[in-house]
Design a protein around this nucleic acid. Sequence first.
DNA 1: AACGTTGTCAACCGCTGGTTA
DNA 2: GTAACCAGCGGTTGACAACGT
Length: 359
Amino acid sequence: MVKSSNRDEAGGVKKGPWTPEEDSKLVEYVDKHGRGSWQRIPKLAGLNRCGKSCRLRWTNYLRPDIRRGKFTEEEEQLVIHLHSVLGNKWSSIATKLPGRTDNEIKNYWNTHLRKKLIRMGIDPVTHRPATNLNLLTGLSSLLSAGGLGGTPSHLDNALKLQADVAHLLKLQLVQSLIQVLTSSYGTPNMDLMNLFRSPLLGNYQPSDLLQLSRQIAGGLGGSLSLQSSIPMTPNLSILSHYLNNIGLQPTTPEHSFPSDAAAVTASDASRTEEPSADISNVSSTNSIPASSSTHPLVSASSETKNIDLVQSSDILCANTLASEPFEACWDNLMKLDTHDSHFGWKDIIDEMSWPDAAP
DNA sequence: AACGTTGTCAACCGCTGGTTA
DNA sequence: GTAACCAGCGGTTGACAACGT
């Protein structure tokens, strides 16, 4: 059902900027008769405009409840948050900002907020760290520089939160890398495995990698209430080693990992989403199947989860401040891309399956 | 002062989906 | 069931302003 939107043009309706006279005619008519049918309004109001143009002019400019002027920090924060949840659903976002039109929000996003996020190393479309390595470099330096001192404004908090999410997503990326090493196509990639066993990245053994992959997925997700929790294995030494390396040592009992060995059992195995990956030949010491799917640490797929995210911001921010070791590890990973011709991290990253974007 | 570049934002365009005849 | 009507949405454009050289 495609409609001709140029129907009115045959009648030679005026286009372009509205004059004050046209504005007053439209306002006067709507004040007197209400909105009614936009198609009939031009004729009834004595305007040589199409109904569409009248509706747009009214909703975006002449409406009495329009709020004009600079966006406040609270509004900016809200737009960023809502965009991370809703995507480019400008009209939906506008319903949460009284007095602001979808057009105005869209323009403000494209001219201000989008660029701001890019400067933060955050992909403004996905609200995740950009996989573009140049942008990641900027993000990395931003994170390691701290850049979080002073008394942050609301907007700073919003952006800081995005950066924290970026940090967590890097962790997810590392987790995904581990999964590539241990389970891609059922055959362990020994070259990559050897790389992870280098002192640079912590001398991980294949069995460690399997453990770590699960620990990161279940542990961080559970501790941050961002993902349905997966019971942890009791192998705290490995986890501790890993957490030390990435600077995410749990700091409070609330965020520590359970040591109850009973937590790791059949119920854990039953959560494995893709049990087809054959890992038995990778690990002789680990009898627990590793999840071959990527567990997103952060999901923007529902408003509820984002509320959780906001509530967890204190934890996230605290962890970010201790992220230097991880950043060093990350930088080393990225350097290897240029120094080792056998493979490219960029290629792996490109192949990585990220969780779905916001609906 | 003149010119080119970049940023901003109002308005337009093409399209979709709901409603009605 | 079908076609036309209509409101609304998101992407894009272009005029104008601001800024830099």
